[in-house]
């Protein structure tokens, strides 16, 4: 089983990212679960979302305490939230930043300047979902297809695919 925790501010698309990645893995034949953690619902508040992936049906419904990967969409959260809390011993931190801060020294941190890559599109979440596919050695097409399936009704398909592929290229 792979367990992923997403850190973002409410409104940045972490819940969408958690479901989108799950959708991609479902289409690849795996069992999945995606759920946000609900606290006070206000834009900008720190938020966590989770994705669980397994080869066999997922039946458990407890929270994820020891994620294998932590994805940080919003680097300013590093000063507010312990994003590495409970991280599995060989866990990976996937961070929207140019370089890893000293506070994460000693950990396996993979940096993607997702905000810069996303540029005007603002699809930081899609860039990081693409990067996550690279980190977990998943096919990028499945993720891009899932992103288009979930968001394609509102956003140009090319724009979605480009954001995912740029994130993937960054770490593959």
């Amino acid at each position: 089983m792979k367990e992923i925790r997403w850190h973002a501010r409410a409104g940045q698309g972490a819940k969408t990212a958690s479901q989108l990645y799950a959708t991609a893995r479902l289409h690849e034949g795996q069992s999945v679960q995606a759920f946000p953690e609900y606290g006070p619902e206000r834009r900008g508040a720190p938020l966590r979302a989770y994705t669980r992936i397994d080869d066999k049906p997922i039946r458990r419904h407890d929270a994820i305490m020891h994620p294998d990967v932590v994805v940080v969409l919003e680097p300013s959260l590093l000063h507010e939230v312990d994003v590495t809390e409970g991280l599995a011993p060989d866990g990976i931190v996937l961070l929207n930043a140019d370089t890893a801060p000293a506070s994460l020294a000693g950990l396996d941190v993979r940096c993607v300047p997702a905000a810069r890559i996303a540029g005007d599109s603002k699809f930081v979440n899609l860039v990081l979902v693409g990067a996550l596919a690279a980190v977990l050695h998943d096919p990028v097409d499945a993720v891009a297809d899932a992103a288009i399936e979930l968001l394609g009704g509102k956003v140009a398909h090319d724009e979605i695919r480009t954001a995912v592929e740029k994130g993937y290229a960054c770490l593959s």
Binding site: S18, Q19, A22, L26, S31, V32, Q33, A34, F35, P36, Y38, I58, H61
Partner: peptide
Amino acid sequence: QDGFTITHSAEP
């Protein structure tokens, strides 16, 4: 169904 645990959890 359990609130949030099921109502808001996405599954196949």
